[in-house]
Design a binder for these strands. Structure first.
Length: 596
RNA sequence: GGUCCGGUAGCUCAGCUGGAUAGAGCAGCAGCCUUCUAAGCUGCGGGUCACAGGUUCGAAUCCUGUCCGGAUCGCCA
């Protein structure tokens, strides 16, 4: 690797010059800023300070010595305390050849032998997927893909919250006011069930308002409303195993799953394993018993069981209610243990919104306290909220952005744009439809994934997602352009012989150099994206690369270049850029069209 | 109130393991299609990096405090 070689050379040069060891922590080669000549830069201020001589002088001396020691350094210049090194064109070109010969260029095996279980999506079955889920799903899927590209074994899991009071509300509403199947209403199953949930909420509010008018306080009204009492009764029946309740529950969940599956399929996300809370929600109790026995937990006089985390600066946390029923935390203790025993994961990653930061903090502390050392493998991939201009999405207020609708709108916009630009020449209708989907979803996915997962992001439904500038379609377009170029290149190359003549490429123009350097950095981004669990790094990199390529494309001839060696070099660059764009897009779940 | 996260151009976002004059896109303005796809390219304008201190040769980046915004502190999930 270049950096390693440069570091080594630097140390050697330093010792030679000053007869002492340089401080390793100050040796870092960064990319030279574009306004200066050079490929890599080292800042010598820290060294000149120790040597008690001027930074310029130090840089000059080290530059000369390094050039003597490492032949790939062909030039250097010094600006203040910055030593800018220029690496030979030959080095870059031979790197390019090497990269082209590696089908897996960019990917690595650093995660070899490690297994990651990543949970994402985790929907409730009482309402359809919305924009928040889109971010969650895309993130989870993409992080999984990125981990795989780093050699990890990845298990993608989804924990479906298919039970609880919220589903009972939908069920009750359906009994009272629905009564029709998705087929009969020509609605997607998840939409139908979601509508029932909203209906319940509306009717409940009306009941409460009525009670308040009769003189009840609003708190009291909320607990006395017949609808909520019936919903609770239904939940009780469900937990008692009542066949009729279970039947209705299974039927309605079935509708929802059918709807979810369509949404997932369109979104392009999938799972290796599905967990259902109805099957796992009781699992935590044993752990709680265990913790109570070994003294990690304690029981209050009413019988409820708690974990005291006040010594760690947190609160007491309830784990089992006085009536012995479990809470969310209890379930998560159980599912974590189940998952661990099933997969022996090196990490269990949970893609869950940052509103649950505290929950996950507490989760691993409790497990640790009870004595499970693997608690440390739990990692909360905490991502920010998707906000609308008016603030948070609120399902009750109808301000949610529905996942299906959004995707359909994006695809439709892609269709309009494409048609308007007259880019449908030789496509069959089927191919054209495929293309609209590719572009529309590409725009959406890139829009979501390019922002740092940890940060909240804003989505303005009134301003449709862009197709120009820093967008998915821009990158797709760049790819399509290159592919078109390469299609035309086959006959240009046929009469040339294999490989590029690199013997005469000591001279390497700026655009070519910039692109090869970007290519060079691809593997580092793949690795860093995995370490920081951030698809955004890949997205930003792709954009850099695409932008640089477009400048290149627009400023130099490629197929029309007369110098054969240069033409082939440019084609090689084009080829690898297309391949990297495609690979990185795959890490984000974005497809790259051959033509657009 | 406690804890956590954030505040960078009109808007959306990069940059944050300290390094050169803080970058893109959108929006605005002006150019570029007889040549490899104009969903592109080029140029112009736009900044007290919330504020105040501190550490340092050097701070958007690290530390402290203040202000502002968000999340959370449920026997909800």
């Amino acid at each position: 690797m270049l950096e390693a070689k440069l570091t080594q050379t630097f140390i050697k040069a330093f010792k030679q010059l000053y007869d002492r060891q340089p401080d390793i922590k100050h040796i870092s080669f960064q990319k030279t800023r574009s306004e200066f000549e050079g490929d890599r830069t080292i800042v010598v201020f820290p060294f000149s300070k120790i040597l008690q001589q001027s930074a310029e002088e130090t840089a000059q001396q080290i530059g000369e010595a390094m050039m003597q020691l490492y032949t790939e350094i062909v030039r250097f210049n010094v600006v203040k305390g910055f030593l800018n090194l220029t690496i030979s064109g030959k080095y870059w070109v031979s790197f390019l050849q090497q990269a082209l010969s590696m089908p897996d260029f960019g990917f690595n095996q650093s995660g070899k032998g490690k297994r990651m279980v990543i949970e994402y999506s985790s929907p409730n079955t009482n309402k359809p997927l919305h924009l928040g889920h889109i971010r969650n799903n895309l993130l989870g899927w993409s992080v999984a893909a990125i981990l795989k590209a780093n050699g990890y074994e990845v298990v993608k899991v989804n924990l479906i919250n298919d039970r609880g009071i919220h589903i009972c509300k939908s069920m009750l509403a359906w009994q009272k006011w629905g009564g029709k199947s998705p087929e009969e209403t020509a609605m997607k199953g998840d939409k139908l069930v979601g509508e029932m949930y909203v209906r319940f909420d509306k009717e409940l509010k009306a009941e409460i308002a009525g009670l308040v008018q009769q003189g009840y306080s609003s708190e009291e009204a909320a607990t006395r409303a017949p609808l909520i009492i019936q919903a609770q009764e239904m939940l009780r029946l469900w937990e008692a195993g009542d066949p009729q309740t279970h039947q209705l529950w299974a039927t309605m969940n079935g509708w929802v799953y059918e709807g979810f599956n369509q949404t997932y399929a369109k979104m392009g996300v999938d799972f290796d394993k599905l967990y259902y809370e109805s099957e796992t929600y009781l699992l935590g109790k044993e752990i709680v018993e265990e913790g109570l026995k070994n003294g990690a937990l304690f029981q209050k006089t009413d019988g409820s069981i708690w974990c005291d985390l006040s010594a760690e600066g947190l609160d007491e946390k309830l784990l089992l209610r006085a009536d012995g029923t479990s809470v969310y935390m209890t379930q998560d203790l159980g599912t974590a243990k189940l998952r661990m025993s099933e997969y022996q994961a090196d990490k269990m990653i949970y893609v869950v919104g940052n509103e649950q930061n505290y929950h996950f903090e507490v989760l691993s502390r409790i497990l640790k306290k009870i004595g499970y050392q693997w608690a440390d493998t739990i990692e909360h991939l905490s991502y920010g909220m998707v906000e609308l201009p008016e603030g948070k999405m609120k399902s009750r207020e109808g301000t949610v952005v529905d996942a299906d609708e959004l995707m359909d709108e994006m695809i439709l916009t892609a269709k309009e744009m494409t048609t308007e630009l007259g880019k449908l020449d030789n496509l069959t209708e089927e191919e054209a439809d495929k293309l609209f989907t590719t572009i529309g979803l590409g725009a959406l996915k890139y829009f979501i994934l390019k922002v740092d997962p940890r940060k909240n992001m804003l989505f303005n439904p009134d301003e449709s997602i862009d197709f120009n500038g820093n967008t998915g379609p821009f990158i797709q377009y760049t790819h399509a352009r290159i592919r078109s170029l390469l299609r035309k290149a086959t006959h240009v190359e046929e009469d040339q012989l294999p490989g590029t003549d690199i013997t005469n490429t000591e001279f390497l123009p700026d655009k070519e150099r910039n692109l090869i350097r970007l290519v060079y950095s691809f593997p580092q981004w793949v690795q860093q994206a995995a370490e920081s669990r951030s698809p955004a790094l890949i997205a930003n990199y792709m954009y850099e690369l695409a932008k640089e390529f477009n400048q290149f494309y627009q400023s130099v001839p490629i197929l029309r270049e007369e110098n054969i060696s240069l033409r082939l070099l440019r084609l090689d660059i084009s080829r690898i850029v297309a391949s990297i764009l495609k690979k990185s897009a795959e890490l984000l779940g974005i497809e790259m069209p051959e033509q657009m």
